Amino acid sequence: MTIPFYKYQGTGNDFVILDNRTGNFTQLTSVEIANLCDRRFGIGADGLMMLQLKEGYDFEMVYFNADGNEGSMCGNGGRCLVAFAKDLGVIDKTAAFLATDGFHEALVKENGWVELKMKDVDKVEKFADHTILNTGSPHYIRWEKDIAKTAVFDEGKRIRYSPPFSEVGINVNFVQLHDDALSVRTYERGVEAETLSCGTGVTAAAIAASNSTIGQQEKKILTPGGELKVKFEKKSDTSFENIWLCGPATFVFSGTIEL
């Protein structure tokens, strides 16, 4: 089978995208998807997405981790898929689409950034040195004094496979607080490695680092792959609404591959 594909990235978080509006690629197996994401024997990506038709929406987002298994919500992936939908002519400047965690809105800005509305958060578990919350995907936030020295792969893997997370898995984010920004490095389940950026992860980090002020807040996020921004409305210490993940989403290249 010849598969036409598109490659997009959002702050270094890269994705293979398939236009599946005809349903031609619905039967791809997890092994085939993993091969497409393989950086040595395939195209190479942190994940694969399919853009599909869905009645009542501009499109549906179906996301697979690099291991070939269908994944939970991917924030940077969602932003890249919106950029792809605009490039296809499926949308203009706004999008209303369905993902695994429900309905999402998005805006394509003049500067090329895509702003994606994330799911509300109504549970934040705070512990002495870490915080756990779900922003469409589950995240473990650990605070660091010097993130450059953090052994992200070793520590991330240890936490991801430790009880009680080992069966389902959890994304592990290491976060350093600065005066005007947060630095975030992430070990992603499904990729089983550090990625250059994680959209749901930086969203979780921003919420976990929120100050005591009730109302609108905004955080600048620095990742190894670039800068993102998270905006949200704090209702209480455990309740957050109107959460927007904002950043670049860029076309890299397109081509065909034989399976």
Results as ranks from 00 to 15, higher is better:
Pro4Glu: 09
Phe5Glu: 00
Phe5Ala: 02
Gly10Thr: 13
Thr11Asn: 13
Thr11Leu: 02
Asn13Gly: 09
Asp14Lys: 01
Asp14Ser: 12
Asp19Tyr: 02
Phe25Gly: 07
Phe25Leu: 05
Leu28Gly: 00
Ile33Ala: 06
Asn35Gln: 15
Arg39Phe: 06
Phe41His: 09
Gly44Trp: 06
Ala45Gly: 09
Asp46Phe: 14
Gly47Met: 06
Leu48Tyr: 05
Gln52Thr: 06
Gln52Met: 06
Leu53Glu: 15
Leu53Gly: 09
Lys54Gly: 08
Tyr57Cys: 09
Phe59Gly: 11
Met61Ala: 01
Val62Gly: 04
Gly68Gln: 07
Glu70Tyr: 07
Gly71Ser: 11
Ser72Trp: 06
Gly75Asp: 10
Gly77Cys: 05
Ala85Glu: 06
Asp92Gln: 15
Thr94Ala: 11
Ala96Phe: 15
Thr100Gly: 11
Leu107His: 13
Val108Asp: 09
Asn111Ser: 12
Trp113Lys: 10
Trp113Ser: 13
Leu116Val: 14
Asp120His: 09
Asp120Lys: 10
Val121Thr: 06
Val124Thr: 01
Lys126His: 11
Lys126Ile: 13
His130Leu: 03
His130Asp: 07
Leu133Met: 03
Thr135His: 04
Ser137Cys: 05
Arg158Asp: 13
Ile159Ala: 01
Pro163Ser: 12
Pro164Thr: 02
Asn171Lys: 10
Asn171His: 11
Asn173Thr: 08
Gln176Asn: 07
Gln176Glu: 15
Ala193Glu: 12
Glu194Gln: 14
Gly201Val: 00
Thr203Ala: 02
Ala205Leu: 01
Asn211Ala: 00
Asn211Glu: 04
Ile214Cys: 04
Ile214Lys: 11
Gln216Asp: 10
Lys220Val: 10
Leu222Ala: 05
Pro224Asn: 04
Pro224Gln: 03
Lys231Asp: 12
Glu233Val: 12
Glu233Leu: 12
Thr238Lys: 14
Glu241Leu: 03
Trp244Ile: 11
Leu245Asp: 08
Cys246Ala: 10
Gly247Ile: 00
Gly247Asp: 00
Gly247Asn: 00
Pro248Phe: 10
Val252Asn: 04
